[in-house]
């Protein structure tokens, strides 16, 4: 489903997010007036085109899940606009929000906690259409359930069972069936395979790709596993401490990564046949800084091997790599 940049100029993005910010504040005990602000997501913009997969990668705490939750408004963003199908999704409320949400769905990481243990599989899958009321008769409801069930390869006989009777992979299928029953245009997948074993993971990834071909749905695919991302993504965004540090097509990111963090991330993946670096210098030093007290200047400078004086003082802007349209990164180097 690769579309070139020139083709894209003619198509409108389904989803456009501009300058999204999500700050959490909390007090330091009830006698203190000081408030601590955590900038979980700090100025993230993205566009999602029909039928494509945009992956967001980064380590824990980089803000990738918060970005997804803010887009679908599980938590309301602090600032920024979200445009879905040309409508200002960020400003909707009540009935309008409910009906707009039919077109945007989410799949969660942990299939054990994402399904209500006291509901049957049939009711879990039907919950979105029960909420939106998009059927007239019980027969129509059943028809929709069976269609979703077949599409994800779930045995129809299992519909009256409860989630605890299923394995992780099967539960994830139930979660996916629930997400596609209303034929959405956008599905946010938050680490959909990281709780699964490799042999099961492969099946779920294949299923997601198959559904994209059939339904033309766009994915925002959040993952920390770069080898999975390389397999599913058309475009990739790399996040670090709430900021986007690099974005580009899959080939840009994996074949010619420009930001030092992206390069280190790619080097850190253990894979078969790859030897461990002989020298400690090749490893990234230190831990992720605390988001309570983020570094000044470039957010990555505390761990960057190429850090200079400029990096410590000023934050680099996300700019296009010369000669590579669509490939942008935030670094002075």
């Amino acid at each position: 489903m690769e579309t070139t940049i020139s083709e894209r100029k003619n198509t409108e993005p389904i989803l456009r997010v501009e300058h999204l910010k999500k700050y959490y504040t909390y007090g330091n005990g009830f006698l203190s007036h000081r408030k601590t602000v955590i900038k979980a997501v700090d100025d993230v913009s993205l566009s999602l085109y029909p039928g494509e997969t945009l992956a967001i990668v980064g380590e824990s705490g980089c803000g990738k899940s918060t970005t997804a939750k803010s887009i679908i408004r599980i938590t309301d963003p602090t600032e920024g606009t979200i445009t879905l199908h040309g409508k200002d999704f960020g400003k909707l409320s009540g009935k309008e929000l409910k009906s707009a949400r039919q077109k945007i769905k989410m799949i969660f990481q942990d299939p054990y906690s994402a399904l209500n243990p006291r509901m049957t599989v049939r009711d879990i899958i039907a919950e979105p259409i029960d909420i939106s009321g998009s059927y007239r008769t019980q027969a129509e409801r059943e028809e929709k359930i069976l269609e979703a069930c077949d599409m994800v390869g779930l045995n129809r006989d299992y519909l009256d069972r409860y989630p605890h009777e299923f394995s992780g992979g099967q539960r994830q299928r139930i979660g996916i069936a629930r997400a596609i029953i209303e034929k959405p245009d956008v599905i946010l997948c938050d680490e959909p395979v990281s709780a699964l074993d490799v042999s099961i993971q492969a099946k779920v990834i294949n299923l997601l790709k198959e559904l994209q071909d059939k339904l033309g749905v766009s994915y925002i695919f959040i993952s920390h596993d770069l080898s999975v991302v390389r397999h599913v993504a058309d475009r990739v965004m790399v996040m670090y401490l709430g900021h986007v540090v690099e974005e580009g097509s899959r080939d840009d990111i994996f074949n010619s990564p420009k930001h030092p963090y992206t390069r280190i991330l790619l080097d850190s993946i253990p894979s078969i046949g790859k030897e461990m670096p002989e020298d400690e210098q090749q490893l990234i030093a230190g831990d992720l800084p605390s988001p309570e007290n983020p570094p000044s200047g470039c957010c990555f400078h505390t761990r960057c091997p190429h850090c200079s004086e400029q990096c410590r003082n000023t934050a680099p802007a996300l700019t296009e790599v010369p000669g590579q349209p669509g490939h942008r990164m935030a670094c002075f180097c």
């Binding site: 394995s167 992979g169 099967q170 074993d197 490799v198 042999s199 099961i200 993971q201 492969a202 099946k203 990834i205 294949n206 790709k209 770069l226 080898s227 999975v228 390389r230 397999h231 994996f254 993946i269 894979s271 078969i272």
Partner: peptide, 24 residues
């Protein structure tokens, strides 16, 4: 053999991942 084939590789461009049928 199946376990190795199921891992997405960084250096291959196969469209579909091999998977082991069934579950443990």
């Amino acid at each position: 053999v199946g376990l190795e084939a199921a891992i997405p590789k960084m250096d291959s461009d196969t469209d579909k991942l091999e998977s082991i049928p069934g579950s443990v």
